[in-house]
């Protein structure tokens, strides 16, 4: 028979809730999820908690244990001091459904916005040939059990609901990286898409996601940083630069380019908010855009080498004027509140 231990568990729903105290028996070798099951069986049968495999393979029992995002089934009670109170709360980045269960549909929406694997057109099933070393890089990311702990811990969205529209999160950066590194994936612009439409630019590489990953995937080092580097590579690649100069825009690989739908969507919705409440100080700040500099880091000197009449804009190639009103920190004095 085990000793009694003190637990604090968040109980409630969208309307609000509170930490409730429970004293519960804990036996040798148990994990936090076992304790929650004991509570369900003995004290509070309606305590809501997701779980499936109980072996760290399905990624269902994600929760925050003493403030750290963890899997309940992989957190052994022996990691706490004998007299330590264990506090269990739902994932903070997602809306609560009830008790420890949160609405994780954000992640499934982002999954749908990530372009799927594009099979090579010239290979029939059974004809795929790949080397083990080549598949291993993608396989690391396919270990992901979709526990969404990385999504939950990422500070870009953890306390910034407003960033969720434009930011896909670490889970989907590794998905993009996985497909980018797939030896036979036919789509070419994974990195550009990640930068333009998945909000990878928001990530400033604090590695919080890597720290909480129960599968020990090196999310930042092996996926995000290489993706970012290669986006930069491309932008400053002399050949690509030359191509930009000598070809017309419609001859460039624009067909493969994906429109920044996520960002566009975010801005339109942001503008609605702004209209209703005057100036929205929490609006989406447009991501900084690099000026079209050459390899010396300077703008082209003359109009002849520039790709547009009148010379390039120092504000970046893809900026249009006048700036869209929702991109300005300015509220018209006439106010939209009355109207």
């Amino acid at each position: 028979m085990g000793a009694k231990r003190r637990f604090k568990i968040w109980r409630g729903d969208q309307a609000g809730g509170d930490l409730k105290d429970y004293d519960v028996e804990v036996n040798d070798g148990e994990v936090v999820l076992d304790v929650i099951h004991r509570l369900q069986a003995t004290q509070t049968p309606d305590l809501a908690c997701r779980w499936n495999c109980k072996a760290g393979k399905c990624g269902s029992c994600s929760m925050e244990i003493n403030g750290t995002p963890r899997l309940g089934c992989m957190t052994r009670m022996s990691t706490f001091a004998e007299d330590e109170t264990v506090t269990v709360t739902p994932l903070r980045a997602f809306p609560v459904v009830r008790d420890l269960v949160t609405d994780v549909s954000f992640n499934y929406d982002k999954a749908r916005q990530t372009p799927a694997f594009a099979p090579p057109a010239d290979l029939a099933p059974g004809e795929y040939r790949m080397q083990q070393v080549d598949v291993e890089r993608s396989q690391e990311f396919r270990k992901c059990i979709e526990c969404f702990l990385c999504q939950n811990t990422c500070h870009v969205v953890r306390d910034h609901e407003e960033n969720k529209k434009a930011f896909a999160g670490p889970r989907y950066f590794i998905r993009a990286a996985e497909l980018d590194m797939h030896p036979l994936d036919a789509q070419e612009d994974r990195k550009e898409f990640a930068q333009a439409s998945m909000g990878m630019g928001y990530c400033n590489i604090t590695k919080c996601c890597t720290e909480v990953c129960p599968e020990h995937i090196k999310i930042t080092d092996n996926a995000i940083i290489p993706m970012k580097e290669r986006v930069v590579d491309r932008r400053y690649d002399p050949l690509v630069w030359l191509g930009r100069k000598i070809f017309r825009r419609d001859q460039l690989d624009g067909a493969g380019q994906v429109p920044a739908t996520a960002l566009v969507g975010a801005r339109t919705e942001g503008s609605e908010v702004a209209q209703h409440h005057g100036l929205n100080w929490h609006r989406e700040i447009p991501q900084p855009q690099a000026a079209p500099v050459d390899e010396t880091g300077r703008l082209p000197i003359s109009e002849i080498t520039a790709d547009r009449p009148g010379g390039p804009s120092p504000f970046g190639d893809d900026q249009t004027f006048p700036l869209p009103p929702e991109g300005l920190n300015y509220a018209h004095p006439s106010g939209t509140e009355q109207g």
Partner: peptide, 23 residues
């Protein structure tokens, strides 16, 4: 076998043999 090969067209990445086939 056809069902497994089909999975590769969906994006599955099985471990490989030396000649690049599914191990």
């Amino acid at each position: 076998p056809s069902r497994i090969w089909e999975l590769e067209t969906y994006g599955a990445l099985f471990d490989r043999t030396k000649d690049g086939k599914i191990s």
